[in-house]
């Protein structure tokens, strides 16, 4: 592992750096576009580094764009879904891993089966059911369908099983209730798994597209994904490329900053799903 740098090493490094350039270039490109006047972009996008530059596209967002409202909706949905998923999946995971109750094998088998159901394949019946219940265009409709998350339950079940049972046994002998043991002892020990599941869920909710597309049909209930998509189909007919790119930058920036801030934790947490 500590050998001298070989030609192979240099080639690998060159390939990785080249790839990194491919990863960064599109983002740099649209950031550049967002500072150019729309009129000029209509003619050419070839002079990104020479004037004129403008801040108008960003000023216009503050004045007129619905991006703020969409971001708020996305944040409510993503945070709400993450918190509730963690609560539901932790409790169920603990129940399956540590307790015994009638019907457990059947319910666990059902969970495994539910894990195999692709979420996009039940959108049509879900949409009809929510329409019958008159629930579309609410946060509840945006959050509920993704709360039944068998993957999360299985992940938590595995994690709780891996925690040595002796700690809990001592507490149980002291006549602590099951719930108290869960709340006071097991839950704090499961924080790494919570982080993994939480970040998965958050990113999943933040990026979800099909369900919000058909459920949040009122423009004021749009999430960021649906709202931005509604603008991009004919950007020439709207305010132009620069404005659209400014909105993309504006919509992407908060999560990107958040990510850079917490990146060490996020990467560890995501990896937590694979190994500990």
């Amino acid at each position: 592992m500590h050998g001298r740098r070989t030609l192979g090493d240099h080639l690998v490094l060159a390939a990785v750096v080249l790839l990194a350039a491919i990863w960064v270039a599109p983002i740099a490109w649209i950031v550049g576009l967002s500072f150019k006047p729309n009129d000029e972009l209509m003619r050419s996008t070839g002079h990104l580094l020479s004037p004129p530059f403008t801040l108008k596209n960003y000023a216009d967002i503050l004045g007129a764009s619905s991006v703020f409202a969409w971001m708020l909706n996305s944040a409510v949905v993503a945070v709400g879904q993450t918190v509730l998923t963690l609560a539901v999946a932790s409790a169920a995971g603990y129940g399956f891993a540590r307790t015994s109750f009638p019907g457990k094998p059947v319910l666990f088998a059902l969970t495994l089966a539910a894990f195999a159901v692709p979420e996009q394949a039940i959108i049509v019946p879900l949409h009809t059911l929510f329409a019958e219940a008159d629930l579309h265009n609410t946060y509840a409709a945006l959050i509920l369908p993704r709360l039944a998350f068998p993957f999360g339950v299985l992940l938590m079940t595995q994690y709780f099983k891996a925690i040595p049972a002796e700690i809990e046994e001592a507490a149980l002998l002291d006549n602590a209730s099951r719930f108290k043991v869960f709340w006071r002892i097991a839950l704090p020990l499961s924080l790494p798994a919570q982080a993994t599941l939480g970040i998965y869920t958050f990113l999943h909710a933040w990026n979800d597209y099909f369900w919000p597309l058909v459920s949040a049909t009122k423009p004021e209930m749009y999430t960021l994904t649906v709202g931005l998509a509604s603008m991009q189909t004919n950007f020439a007919q709207t305010e132009g490329i620069g404005f659209l790119m400014a909105q993309a930058v504006f919509a992407g920036l908060p999560v990107l900053v958040l990510y850079l801030f917490f990146q060490r934790h996020i990467v560890t947490a995501v990896a937590g799903g694979a190994a500990k």
């Binding site: 990863w23 960064v24 960021l224 998509a229 990107l256 850079l260 990467v267």
Partner: peptide, 13 residues
Amino acid sequence: SVFFGSSVLSVTV
């Protein structure tokens, strides 16, 4: 972080 960073952008961005 460069390679992971784009994962946090939403599909529409």
